[in-house]
Design a protein around this nucleic acid. Structure first.
Lengths: 225, 225
DNA sequence: GTTTTATGATAGTAATACTATTATATTTGT
DNA sequence: ACAAATATAATAGTATTACTATCATAAAAC
């Protein structure tokens, strides 16, 4: 089985980390380290120590740690879209597509052997804790102009099309799907850390209940009246 | 008309800023400055210069800038709950209460003369951009144990009760309301910065459409089947 | 076999997030 | 009215962060 790679927006990096050994080590170790320390405590210096390299070398790949985070989250969106495609491309009915897609969004993320040097479980924990920090910045408009949020937008657009097919009169397809994508990760975070803000349990079959919640949320909302 | 004050969790501060002139200046100026610079660029040093005081003096009121942010956001939740109470306490029907409440959540926030030294419009912009950073940290569990998210939880609990009254069989009242509260601010942020993730416009009557979206989202979800 | 390119080693800087100390001004208790 | 307590200001200092710059060397490409 060939290892797949995603073509990410080149503005995310200075040198493409997928094409060199050091680059791959940077990606791989940054996932582990951000997961462990949290983005605030994570530094290029610590990362350099981890992979026996130097700060200066890492700066040749990424302008700063925010761009690196954008890269990782961008990779995640690509991976999620790839998974959505995997489970929906065979389907024709948009209702079925939407259902399959919600399952992918709500499912517990597992390590994907198609992609070397990225631990998807750790990456998803990063998504849970750090995603919002990619756009909640003063430079959001500049970053957006550079297309750095393309992965998120792409998924949103795709799913919004299905919603429009199901009910062309529903006026808020983009809002509904961006809400769904963010709600999925928020509720998992709340289940883990702020349980009184949710109804999902940490341990047991959280994904199933979450999927049920999201299915209800979406399909009731877009129902023709 | 008497100026109202909220009793906030004392663990949020070292010295109560509401009770001294310097404290009030700290609160007031930090709202302006965080709004202007963003939380990342905001420092106690810049704040001290702004109010002609010193870093050391500010540190006597707040342990660090994260606690100060928690204080401001805590104040916001108290203010929002106060507004919800204001518009719902006269109502008896939980459906009506819920509707009125959604209106308060979706409405454009205006300066409230009942509260001196807090600019609610600026504070709401801070909420839009910085709220998630209060809990997306490595110390979230410690902070939660200290009750620092009490304001958010309190609102959630209150509204969840109304949902339970309307439909006792709906299984996800807390998830639904925390989703609503966060969605409201996310969609406003997206309208301003990432318009392809939403269907709301920046300029015109965004609040009205947003309210409609949220009303539909909630009432369709909790509808008895 | 030389030129290009990538990496490593090392150094340096301004800013940040604090902590500590002392002096002075103000308020409070008696 | 005076001493004691308290709040604030002024100043200094520290470890860490987020970079930038320079130079040497090793590996790859032409």
């Amino acid at each position: 089985m060939p290892t797949l790679t995603f073509k990410l927006n080149p503005l995310l990096y200075l040198r493409d980390p997928q094409h060199t050994e050091l680059g791959q080590k940077i990606i791989s170790a940054s996932v582990t380290l951000i997961d462990k320390l949290g983005f605030e405590q994570f530094t290029f210096k610590k990362l350099a120590e981890e992979i026996d390299s130097t700060e200066a070398s890492i700066y040749r790949y990424f302008e700063n740690k925010h761009r690196l985070l954008l890269y990782l989250i961008g990779w995640y969106w690509n991976w999620l879209e790839y998974r959505i495609d995997l489970f929906t491309s065979v389907l024709t009915d948009p209702v079925e597509k939407l259902k399959a897609c919600i399952r992918v969004i709500a499912e517990k993320k597992k390590y994907d052997t198609n992609f070397d040097f990225i631990d998807e479980e750790a990456l998803y924990r990063i998504v849970l804790a750090e995603l919002d920090k990619t756009y909640l910045t003063k430079q959001v408009d500049v970053d957006n102009k550079d297309g750095l949020f393309g992965g998120f937008k792409s998924i949103c657009k795709k799913i919004a099309e299905w919603i429009k097919e199901i009910n062309p009169d529903y006026p808020y397809p983009h809002a509904l799907i961006s809400t769904t994508l963010l709600t999925a990760k928020q509720q998992i975070f709340f289940a883990d850390h702020l349980p009184s803000l949710t109804d999902f349990k940490k341990v047991s079959d959280q994904a199933g209940a979450l999927e049920d919640f999201l299915l209800n949320l979406i399909f009731q909302s877009i129902k023709k009246s």
